[in-house]
Design a protein around this nucleic acid. Structure first.
Length: 261
DNA sequence: ATGGTTGTCATACAA
């Protein structure tokens, strides 16, 4: 089962970017972030035509997440638990049933800029809620995958120019420590397994501005966390870096794992 | 210090 995350940066504006990648990469399950549409505006037909079931958690104008799956989607949960007043659509969780059932948590973690300020406070509070939800998923002792745009640069080597991010919410010590706490509860960070000793990169995001892609001025902020039972099924992983060079790209590229499931 | 880009919605805001 190939499971991917893709911050599409507007699914209506980039539907052909998405369907082109789906046709080429053939993922079984995809979590999308920044669909930037309400549920009723989601361009379901061209995606369903490629064989995907669709569950969305949309929002007008900003944010919005979705799950696409070639397998049946069951027990959908919309919104991150822990704050009834939170109206931002940044979390969707569901079970996909292939050879085995896998719990999928698709997330769009708050950016948190400008730092400091209320948006950064919201980011840290959201991360504490995510940690609690992650602990519940781990306690189930079943295969679970928590993946998406985490908006956190884990380490200096995850940025081409880490010194430029020192004042940014994505690279604050508090953000990084919070992500470490989540992972240390028992998750396996999949992408870093490929080259554990890399001194720079790989990256998953390149800003549209100032020729960041051409200069390979990227950061790694899209992550895939595996529960122990999911990590035991890990077969392969990758970053579809080439998508960033195509027409009308998102500023993020897809990141994926293959599980024996 | 500023401008550099993009999507959405309506002229800024979020990223």
């Amino acid at each position: 089962m190939k499971i991917a995350t893709f911050n599409i940066n507007g699914v209506r504006a980039r539907i052909e970017t998405l369907t082109g990648w789906l046709s080429e990469a053939q993922p079984d399950v995809v979590v999308l972030q920044e669909i930037k549409t309400q549920d009723e505006g989601f361009p379901a037909e061209p995606i369903a035509d490629l064989g995907y079931n669709i569950e969305t958690h949309g929002q007008k104008g900003f944010n919005g997440v979705a799950i696409l799956s070639r397998y049946p989607i069951e027990d959908v949960m919309r919104g991150l638990p822990g704050d009834d007043t939170d109206e931002q659509s940044r979390y969707i969780e569901a079970t996909v049933v292939g050879d085995r059932a896998i719990r999928i948590a698709g997330l769009y973690l708050p950016n948190g800029n400008p730092f400091p300020g209320p948006k950064f406070d919201y980011k840290l509070a959201w991360m504490e809620r995510l940690r609690a939800r992650g602990q519940a998923l781990l306690a189930a002792e079943t295969p679970a995958v928590m993946l998406g745009d985490f908006n956190v640069i884990p380490e200096p080597r995850d940025a081409a120019h880490p010194e430029r991010w020192l004042d940014d919410a994505l690279f604050q010590p508090e953000s990084r420590a919070s992500l470490r706490r989540i992972i240390h509860d028992g998750w396996t960070e999949a992408v870093r397994l490929r080259d554990p000793d890399a001194t720079r990169g790989p990256f998953t995001f390149w800003d549209y501005q100032a020729g960041a892609w051409q200069k390979d001025n990227g950061i790694r902020i899209d992550h895939i966390l595996l529960s122990p039972q999911a990590a035991d099924l890990l077969v392969d992983l990758g970053i579809d870096r080439d998508e960033r060079a195509k027409d009308k790209p998102s500023d993020h590229v897809p990141v994926w794992v293959t599980l024996d499931a």
